[in-house]
């Protein structure tokens, strides 16, 4: 179970690191090297985004990565192959992140089966609220996969509690309004929100959207359990190349 694994890691680390890549961007070969570099840098788990033509929750950087991956010929079948390989070769848990249409067209149950076959541990589907996800929840549950749900600063208390009843693995707390990649103010306000999240669920909390450097990770230590670095690693790769990934990840924690 993903949660058990994370709990064990948390015995040795005050805060875990989760990174995000868009499969097929800039190419599947590069993605493999990026995973290798991230694992060498010490990431604890990774999101593998299956590109989608309409990624409404993503900001410009990840949006462009989705488009370019598709333009270069990324398919769901290739993404599954890739996941199969990295799950076998690297000792960290991998999750899929994508939009619901990718699962829906594949067949939700078939998708969960494909994840389980390849050793992918869970999925984040930002446009699938639990109310629309009965089939998905059942399919994930059958295979002990973790459906990761999202908390936002706007989510009402009764809804936080309701989401907690179906979430598994951890809960992804979106640090602010907006899309991925924009700046986040790491403030008392955020701290307060994370306290509300903590009260609503016993699951570990991941915090993402705008986390980009060591000081952000430091701020989150003790308040959340997993810092999610999404857009920033893509920016680092775009500007400094894959060689910069390992030192960047290493530098995020003392």
């Amino acid at each position: 179970m993903l949660e058990t694994h994370l709990r064990k890691r948390l015995e040795h680390q005050e805060i875990l690191l989760m990174t995000h890549i868009v499969l097929g961007y800039p190419s599947f070969e590069d993605c493999y090297r990026i995973v290798e570099a991230m694992v060498a840098g010490g990431v604890d788990l990774m999101e593998l985004q299956i590109p989608f033509s309409e990624p409404i929750a993503d900001g410009p950087v990840i949006l462009m990565a989705n488009q370019q991956a598709l333009a270069a010929g990324a398919t769901v079948a290739r993404c599954l192959e890739f996941a199969d390989r990295v799950c076998r070769e690297f000792p960290i848990p991998f999750l899929f992140m994508s939009y619901y249409n990718i699962l829906f067209k594949f067949g939700v149950d078939a998708f969960a089966a494909a994840m389980a076959d390849r050793g992918v541990r869970g999925a984040i589907v930002p446009d699938l609220p639990p109310e629309e996800g009965a089939d998905y929840l059942a399919a994930m549950d059958r295979r002990e996969l973790a459906p990761i749900f999202i908390y936002s600063p706007n989510t009402r208390p009764e809804r936080l509690a309701r989401i907690a009843t179906v979430a598994r693995g951890f809960v992804y707390c979106v640090a602010r309004k907006g899309v991925t990649g924009a700046d986040t103010r790491f403030s008392a306000h955020l701290e307060d929100y994370l306290r509300r999240c903590r009260a609503a669920t016993a699951l570990p909390l991941a915090v993402g959207f705008g986390v980009k450097d060591r000081s952000d990770v430091e701020f989150l230590t003790g308040k959340g359990d997993i810092a999610v670095i999404g857009t920033q690693t893509i920016r680092i790769i775009e500007t400094q190349g894959i060689g910069a990934v390992t030192p960047f990840i290493r530098g995020l924690r003392p």
Partner: peptide, 14 residues
């Protein structure tokens, strides 16, 4: 139909 919306908009839609 349905409401396949990101969590951040749930309150706005309510």
């Amino acid at each position: 139909g349905g409401m396949f919306i990101p969590e951040i908009l749930s309150t706005t839609f309510d």
